[in-house]
Design a binder for these strands. Sequence first.
DNA 1: ACCTGAACACCGTTCAAGT
DNA 2: ACCTGAACACCGTTCAAGT
Lengths: 192, 192
Amino acid sequence: MRHDRDSVVDAALRILDEWGLPELTMRRLAAALEVQPSALYHHFANKQTLLAAVADRIQEAARPGPSPALPWYEATLAEAVNVRDALLAYRDGAEVVLSTRALGLGGDAAHERLAAALRRGHDPETAGLVATALLHLILGDASLAQQRLQADSLGAVAPGTPDASDPGLVFRLGVELLLSGLELAEQSARVE
Amino acid sequence: MRHDRDSVVDAALRILDEWGLPELTMRRLAAALEVQPSALYHHFANKQTLLAAVADRIQEAARPGPSPALPWYEATLAEAVNVRDALLAYRDGAEVVLSTRALGLGGDAAHERLAAALRRGHDPETAGLVATALLHLILGDASLAQQRLQADSLGAVAPGTPDASDPGLVFRLGVELLLSGLELAEQSARVE
DNA sequence: ACCTGAACACCGTTCAAGT
DNA sequence: ACCTGAACACCGTTCAAGT
């Protein structure tokens, strides 16, 4: 049986979700496809490029954007939840997207969603910057939350981890404070 | 020559700063100490535990805290800068702290600094939560900024990266919006 | 307490060669 | 275009044994 890039990414996503990122090796992926490890290098130049394709698929699986009628605050909040949910939908999804983005690989779907929502009420430059800050908060929070799931399942106890009783509390608080700070800055600029 | 845990961490920090996290292998560390790889397992149970000790040292190297006279807003801003600077002081420092924290290993020095500053103006529970949100923003932003340095030095071009012209712009904007959102929430609570 | 020597079970990647 | 087979240069970790 022969494969193309898409089917390789399919198999990679299945291994990622079932076994986690450390188990997603080129050799294991090749075995799942019943192929030699070297065959994978026909489809992707190296493992990082493959992971970038995986990251893109995780981001593109997010829910459709909010209704165009929603004002910027509510639209951005909704997109933040959409992005976070997409990252959490696959095991270790946040870490894959974080490291891919850090290396300058892969697409920009998550950032663009947040920026588009913010542009409903702000100039493009501000929207881009705030989208980046939001995305960093979401990526940092989601990868910590996700890796903690693993650590917990292995019996480890994390230090100072307020998320345990209400997962997502820090995320919601952080996003809402950031957006209300933005609203405040906008209002005081209008008064001047 | 014989070594203890501290001297092993010293050597690990030197390799980290000079060569980066991917090059910080147990075998390379052993070679730098002129010792067999297996000797390292006398000092640390495994590589993750060693990295946790490295992460603690990075966090503890932060500048002394702000003057006790400063109000919570300014004190927290100052500590956020201190924490970020400490993470950026060693190559890949943010990533080491992020992954260690995610696994529930290592200490909590950075979080505690932020929480202590916030407690100057807020109840301990709110201070803890906001400190976590701030730390996630800082860790996400710093590890992306740091890995981008590597990517850039290899000639890669990152997509949608507003930080290029002013490094730290997203960090400052994010932290200030978050804190002014908190100030706003506090004022409206006082009116009610 | 701290280390050696040797081994085990893996990695990512390359490359000539096949169909 | 897609893959095999074999190899290269690495990993983290274990364990009996040494001083």
